[in-house]
Design a binder for these strands. Structure first.
Lengths: 173, 173
DNA sequence: TGTGAGTGATTGATCAATAACTAATTTATA
DNA sequence: TATAAATTAGTTATTGATCAATCACTCACA
């Protein structure tokens, strides 16, 4: 560690980014660690120097994708005016979807993965986002905060599906 | 064919039902045709007498699951009073989710499968349900039919996620 | 001469799909 | 009516690919 940790930390992040793309494109179970390695420009066994199993790689990738949403939302909440809050959160989520489509596709996949560590990560991701949005609505005096939070997330999920299937009419309006 | 078609048609349906369960539990790509065969009480190769590939089996299973929703919704729409329409559709969807959990989990999985035939089936499933609900809302004079349809479907999708992850607080209210 | 970064070769399992078969039932015919 | 032929319903055995993960190694360099 120390000043030289940066090299391997970067490698690690490169692998995570490659994995997110490959898993999203091909499906986690069908995607191979060889495909991830090629995308990251390294050999297949080298992945296992950073992640002990393919599932651990998925887990870390998922956590990173939730972190991105949480960070972006917190920043919006810290700066937006109360009347613009919900609209700015929506726009921020749309930007994330455009810039990090693969991360959202990976989250969608993980919604139905029954392995315990994955389910726990997804539960905690959803819970965190829900709490962040709900508390922001409440602090800004949004009426019916609970219902508004629910609808905010519901629209986000429909937005995901609309993007994944290429079905824009699902989100008209 | 004729009066004796029932035997093989039943076998076919047994395989589809088994596939829906196994695919939902294990994930389509990880699930094996052997697991499906065991669940259906037949040998693994016999599946390929009815379906030429594993993907075709998935396709047929998906179509059956969309058909169930469409049929149920059409029946509700034909009989419900205009003021109770949306509420009855919601209750019907919840009943389907309880009785055919696996079918909904399979649909969720298929939302991110990029293979063309699967994407087409999913697009057409969503389009059909949207059209059925929208036309019913319009005929019953529901105001803002388009927005109401969108929110109806969005809540349904959140309901799926809440069920799949075991996270009831997502649907509170 | 030790260490961090990385690779090639291999392996044991696993799977979809095919081929070649059998047993039972139905149908046609002498 | 007895029986041969055809069809239906199903099986066992096999194969060619594919993969995650491990092992043993190389190379640069401080």
């Amino acid at each position: 560690m120390g000043k030289n940790e940066s090299a391997s930390v970067n490698r690690r992040m490169e692998i995570i980014s490659a994995a997110i793309e490959v898993f999203a494109e091909t499906g986690y179970y069908r995607a191979t660690t060889m495909q991830v390695a090629k995308r990251a420009g390294i050999s297949q066994p080298y992945i296992f120097r950073f992640f002990s199993t393919k599932e651990e790689l998925l887990l870390v990738a998922l956590e990173a994708s939730w972190q991105r949403i949480a960070d972006s939302f917190r920043q919006v909440i810290a700066t937006a005016s109360p009347t613009r809050l919900e609209q700015e959160l929506i726009e921020t989520y749309e930007e994330i979807m455009n810039a990090y489509r693969s991360e959202m596709l990976l989250q969608m996949q993980a919604q139905t993965i029954q392995e315990e560590p994955i389910r726990m990560a997804m539960q905690s991701g959803f819970r965190d986002i829900r709490r962040i949005v709900l508390e922001a609505f409440q602090k800004n005096g949004v009426p019916d905060s609970e219902e508004r939070t629910k609808l905010f997330i519901a629209r986000g999920m429909l937005c995901n599906i609309s993007m994944a299937l290429g079905l824009p009419e699902l989100m008209e309006g």
